[in-house]
């Protein structure tokens, strides 16, 4: 289904020339950059801190899953968890309209947790493929 619109050929030629010269270096600029990554700033004890780094173009929404030992009592979460299943020790943050950059998520536990008992996972839809992406990380 097409429709014709008149526009100057010179503009198209200029655009084509620009694309020829500008496009090849672009993959080099983006190569090796993960869209989203996560790491623990503090991954043991009573105060847990996660840092999420989001590159551009960013997915608009992330789900961050925090896995703790079963039965862990949470005293505070910043921002607040959207879901927390104390029986499983699994909490979820829903981060919407997220901007590229670094974001810190914090937890205060009732009792200290061991480093090996904690892990995190980030879920998002890859903006280019539209596929669900899972990213696991540990302290």
């Amino acid at each position: 289904m097409t429709a014709k619109i008149i526009h100057p050929r010179t503009q198209s030629l200029l655009l084509l020339t620009l694309l020829i010269f500008l496009l090849p270096p672009m993959p080099l600029l983006y190569a090796g950059e993960a869209l989203v990554s996560g790491r623990y700033l503090n991954g043991a004890g009573q105060d847990i801190q996660l840092q999420i780094t989001v590159a551009s173009p960013a997915p608009s929404t992330l789900i961050v899953i925090q896995k703790l030992p079963a039965g862990t009592v949470i005293e505070a979460a910043t921002p607040a968890f959207h879901q927390y299943d104390a029986g499983k020790g699994e909490g979820k943050w829903l981060l919407t309209q997220i901007r590229p950059g670094r974001h810190v998520l914090s937890l205060r536990l009732a009792h200290p947790a061991a480093a090996g008992a904690i892990s995190g996972e980030i879920r998002y839809m890859d903006p280019s493929s539209g596929r669900l992406t899972n990213l696991s990380f540990r302290p």
Partner: peptide, 30 residues
């Protein structure tokens, strides 16, 4: 589930001012 929630936000969340019922969707998700 998570995939359905993310899919909704990727598709419709970027339209500024479109109130597509995200509160109800998040309530069902939780």
């Amino acid at each position: 589930d998570d995939e359905e929630l993310l899919s909704v936000y990727e598709t419709y969340g970027g339209i500024e001012g479109l109130t597509f019922g995200n509160k109800l969707i998040e309530d069902i998700w939780t």
